[in-house]
Simulated assay, not measured.
Amino acid sequence: MNSWMKIEEFCTLVNLDVAAVHALIDEGKLVAKEDEEGSYFVEVSRSAQALIPATKGVVLDEAYEGGSVSMSSEFVEKTLGAILSLHEKVLDAKEETLETLKGENRFLKEALFSMQELYDEDRKTIETLTKQIEILQDELEFTKRKYKMMWNKAVESYTPSAK
């Protein structure tokens, strides 16, 4: 698996300046490529082997009871590779999470627009029903007056018949 890193980040990681890394690239000790924008990228896993001296192991003096610890360059390379692999997995998970959140935001935005449309339709329906109720109330009031006038005339013109 190729792990590419910007040359500036690589320089920070290996504690070298950019000119020294370019010199190592020119010598063929480091694998690098240039993108369309002119940025250089260094292939980390193969380049790490060129930077680690080809000794049987690395000895670290530690201030603990055991004294020193020796590690092979292969172990260091595998450790760096594992760290970079984990870093890539974290970045992939981060991108996946961002995509998921963007999808959820799009869904919520669409739902909000849909709810707004439903609200507008309901508001129009309420306005229509309110107008119909007002019309029916006016008709009812008119019918009550008409009914009252008819019965008032009927009562006035009523004459009781003699038995």
Rank of each mutant, 00 (worst) to 15 (best):
L13A: 03
G28I: 01
T125V: 10
R106L: 15
S73L: 03
K153Q: 13
K33W: 04
S47E: 00
F107R: 15
V155G: 02
N15W: 04
E139D: 10
N15Q: 11
E110R: 07
K124Y: 08
S47V: 03
V42L: 00
P160I: 13
V21L: 02
R46F: 03
A50D: 03
E95L: 14
F107Y: 14
V58P: 03
M5Q: 00
S70A: 13
E27M: 14
E37P: 02
G66F: 04
T159I: 09
A93Y: 07
K124V: 07
D120I: 07
I133T: 04
V44A: 00
E104L: 14
E139L: 01
Q137D: 09
T143Q: 12
I135T: 12
E8I: 04
T100Q: 11
V21R: 02
R145H: 10
K29L: 10
S157Q: 11
E62P: 00
D122C: 11
E88I: 01
S39N: 13
I7T: 05
S70N: 12
E127L: 06
S45D: 09
L129T: 02
T55N: 10
K89F: 01
V69W: 06
K153A: 12
S39W: 06
G28K: 02
G66H: 04
F41Y: 01
Q137L: 07
Y147I: 14
V31I: 12
A48E: 02
H87L: 11
E127N: 11
I52K: 04
